[in-house]
């Protein structure tokens, strides 16, 4: 177990193993997302209440899931970096943050657009949308804090601490926003929670969710590899790798 963790922590080893894993995740992501999209857009039956506007669900929900998962992954990577001083964990956390912010933006945008046919307005202080908006600010805070330090080591540790503080707060924020919303807006019509979705509707959703997760893993592996090359550029193995590549 320890040997494995330390092996994984070696940038060189991670660079090799991720090269082998990466193509599989790209193939899975492309396959799942293309199948899920065609199925969700063209074959899944229209919703009896919302008609075809419910097809926004197939991008809104995976993006929202991923936005929250990425923040948790970022905090776990930060914890690993702080406890075991594994640099690869911090590199992964650094490249995850912009994708997480992009996913949060997608879920906010699609939620707002979905609001027009459902609520008749572009923005509603719906509990989910409000939580997502706060999550976006948390992402922007982590990205800005990392960028504000001149020393890379301080930047990494500060971003790790903030990600961990944020992840402890996310459930509290989510709970309190839910409570606040039910207080002010006695449960109207929430767009995503529906009773018993038929199989033809949720199967494509499952494919999309899995596809988005594969995409996240593939992109994180790819960008972490670049980050390793950038930060380890004066190491012998990187130089040899570059010379061989020529």
């Amino acid at each position: 177990m320890w040997a494995f963790i330390h092996k994984l922590g070696s940038p060189k080893w991670f660079y090799r193993i991720s090269a082998k894993l990466q193509p599989w995740f790209w193939v899975a992501a492309a396959g799942l997302i293309v199948t899920g999209s065609l199925w969700g857009l063209a074959f899944a039956p229209a919703d009896y209440q919302q008609g075809n506007s419910f097809r926004i669900l197939y991008v809104h929900v995976p993006a929202a899931f991923l936005a929250q998962s990425i923040f948790v992954s970022m905090a776990i990577a930060g914890l690993v970096y702080m406890v075991w001083k594994i640099k690869v964990a911090d590199m992964a956390a650094a490249v995850m943050a912009p994708l997480g912010a992009a996913m949060t933006f997608i879920s906010l945008f699609s939620g707002a657009v979905w609001g027009v046919p459902t609520w008749g307005t572009w923005w509603m202080w719906d509990a989910r949308l409000t939580s997502m908006l706060i999550l976006l600010f948390l992402y922007l805070g982590v990205i800005a804090l990392r960028g504000a330090f001149t020393s890379r080591d301080s930047a990494s540790r500060a971003a790790s601490v903030l990600a961990m503080v944020g992840v402890i707060n996310i459930p509290i924020i989510k709970y309190s926003v839910d409570w606040w919303y039910t207080l002010h807006q006695p449960a109207t019509f929430t767009i995503t929670s529906r009773p018993a979705m038929p199989t033809e509707m949720w199967l494509p959703l499952l494919l999309m969710v899995l596809g988005f997760y594969s995409f996240f893993i593939a992109l994180t592996l790819m960008r972490t590899r670049s980050e390793i090359l950038r930060r380890e550029s004066n190491k012998r193995w990187v130089r040899e790798l570059v010379e061989e590549g020529q």
Binding site: G141, A144, N169, I173, V177
Partner: peptide, 15 residues
Amino acid sequence: LLSLLVLPLYIPVLI
């Protein structure tokens, strides 16, 4: 930067 970091975490207390 301080306000950006801290204000989102203040929301439960505000609520």
